[in-house]
């Protein structure tokens, strides 16, 4: 069995199994935790503010725009770039369609994908460098933060190297490394801060709903 065969077969299968077990464990486990009962009288329903909070928090309060500009620009570049690369690159679309039994959707030209990949990689590198150099960021960053950045960066970089048929290794080796780095990401997602992808919507909703009940403007 070659490295590519392993990455396409058992490696992919086991990493997906770990991803699914991990996601369901964390999501089901968190959602079923019993919340403290709120005995105060609600000033308004929580549903509306909860939903509003989910969307409102895509952009910071005006007071915080300037201090968080680096994170806002970098964060949006990273997330939009990842979305484009993951969901609009033809080989990735085929992977999702095959896994989920979905019809194939339209893809973007590869030069746009490469541009998105480069911006994504650049923003991830910038985040790592900022963590290492900013006095406050350095103090509040732990292993999980650095590891999550790097584990996200690896599939982007290896994917671009493979796509470009970079002559540092044979294409199938680069493709295998790309798949293995994706598999590492799958395993890492439920165990790390990358699980924010699962929790950011319910946690925003929960906080917005709690604030709403107490009459706080969301």
């Amino acid at each position: 069995m070659t490295l590519l065969d392993f990455a396409r077969g058992p490696g992919m299968q086991w990493s997906l199994i770990i991803l699914i077990v991990g996601i369901l464990w964390r999501v089901v486990g968190t959602l079923l935790l019993s919340a403290e009962k709120d005995y105060s009288q609600a000033r308004q329903g929580g549903t509306g503010p909860g939903i509003r909070a989910v969307f409102r928090r895509f952009w910071p309060h005006p007071e915080f725009v300037k201090p968080t500009l680096f994170h806002m620009v970098g964060g949006y570049t990273l997330h939009i770039g990842l979305f484009v690369v993951i969901f609009l690159f033809a080989p990735h679309i085929l992977w999702f369609a095959d896994l989920l039994g979905l019809p194939v959707w339209a893809n973007l030209p590869n030069n746009i994908i490469m541009l998105a990949g480069a911006l994504t990689a650049a923003s991830l590198v910038a985040f790592v460098l900022r963590r290492m150099t900013h006095p406050v960021m350095r103090r509040i960053s732990g292993f999980d933060d650095y590891a999550s950045n790097i584990v996200t960066l690896l599939p982007v970089v290896t994917g671009m190297l493979a796509f470009a048929h970079t002559p540092i290794a044979r294409y199938e080796t680069l493709l295998a490394l790309h798949l293995l780095s994706v598999e590492l990401l799958f395993v890492w997602i439920p165990l790390s801060k990358l699980a924010h992808a699962l929790f950011f919507i319910p946690s925003r909703y929960q906080l917005g709903a709690a604030f709403g009940r107490r009459g706080v403007k969301v």
Partner: peptide, 12 residues
Amino acid sequence: AGIGAAIGIGSA
């Protein structure tokens, strides 16, 4: 998926 859900319920 089944195992994950079961572990989730157990941990909850």
